[in-house]
Simulated scan of single mutants.
Amino acid sequence: MQRILSADQLAPERPVMIYGAGVAGRTLRHLLEREGIMVQAFIDSFRNGKEDDLPVFRVDEIDKYEIEKVVICSIYVNEIIAACRLRGLENIVDGYPLYVLHTRTGFRLRFPRS
């Protein structure tokens, strides 16, 4: 699986969904959007609804949607890959290294509590 260390590794004309709607996923969303990558929604293992003005879909609901690419932003990469592949998703990349790289180099965003 491809690990993302730069937003340049993603095609800006292709929207993505981020797996992980917590602080790491929201931070990655802002980082990607700042680089011109459109984020359609979040995917989460445990909840649905809205987060940071984007829809959040439970993983067991994602087969209803057309998904171009999933960018994982979680330490549970292997479990998430298995859950996505069970649902027919193959275009999956690991964005957690990009999140870690930017949070360790001073990139910080503050989020209001939802």
Rank of each mutant, 00 (worst) to 15 (best):
C84R: 02
D94K: 02
I67W: 02
N78T: 14
L109I: 15
G36F: 07
F46P: 00
G106M: 03
P97D: 01
C73G: 09
P97W: 04
N91L: 00
V77K: 12
P97Q: 01
V71T: 09
T105M: 08
L109T: 13
Y99G: 11
K64T: 15
D53E: 14
Y76Q: 08
D53F: 14
D44E: 10
I80T: 06
V70F: 04
I62L: 05
D94A: 01
F57Q: 15
I92M: 03
H102L: 09
L98C: 03
V70S: 10
D44H: 03
E51G: 10
Y99I: 04
D60P: 02
I80L: 02
E51I: 08
F46Q: 15
M38N: 12
E90L: 04
A83M: 08
Y65G: 12
R108V: 02
V39I: 04
E79N: 10
D94N: 11
I67G: 05
I43M: 02
E51Q: 13
G36W: 02
P97V: 01
I81M: 09
D52K: 05
N91V: 03
V70L: 02
Y96G: 00
M38D: 14
H102F: 10
H102K: 14
F46E: 14
K64W: 04
I37D: 06
G88N: 01
I43Y: 00
L89N: 01
R58I: 00
Y99Q: 09
D94F: 07
L54G: 04
R85P: 10
V93E: 09
G36P: 14
V56Q: 01
N78Y: 07
D53P: 03
E61Y: 04
G106Y: 05
I37P: 13
N78H: 10
K64H: 11
D60Y: 10
D60G: 02
I92P: 03
Y76K: 07
E68Y: 13
C73H: 07
P55V: 06
I62A: 06
G88A: 05
N91W: 00
Y99T: 06
D53A: 14
F107G: 15
E66F: 11
R87C: 10
L54C: 03
A82M: 13
Q40W: 07
V39H: 01
R104W: 05
V39W: 01
G36K: 00
Q40V: 14
I75H: 12
G106C: 01
L98E: 02
I43A: 03
A82T: 12
I67S: 05
E66A: 15
T103M: 07
C73A: 10
I75W: 06
D52Q: 12
T105N: 12
D52S: 07
I67R: 00
E61A: 15
V93P: 02
L98R: 02
D52I: 06
G106H: 04
Y65I: 12
Y96F: 15
R58V: 01
D60W: 05
K69T: 14
D94R: 03
D52L: 10
E61F: 05
D63F: 04
V77Q: 05
Y99N: 11
I43E: 07
I62N: 01
A82D: 13
V39C: 02
M38T: 15
V77L: 00
F46A: 13
E90T: 13
I81L: 10
E90C: 05
G36Y: 01
D44F: 00
D60N: 12
I72M: 06
G106K: 02
I75Q: 08
S45F: 10
V71D: 11
D44A: 09
I43N: 04
V59H: 11
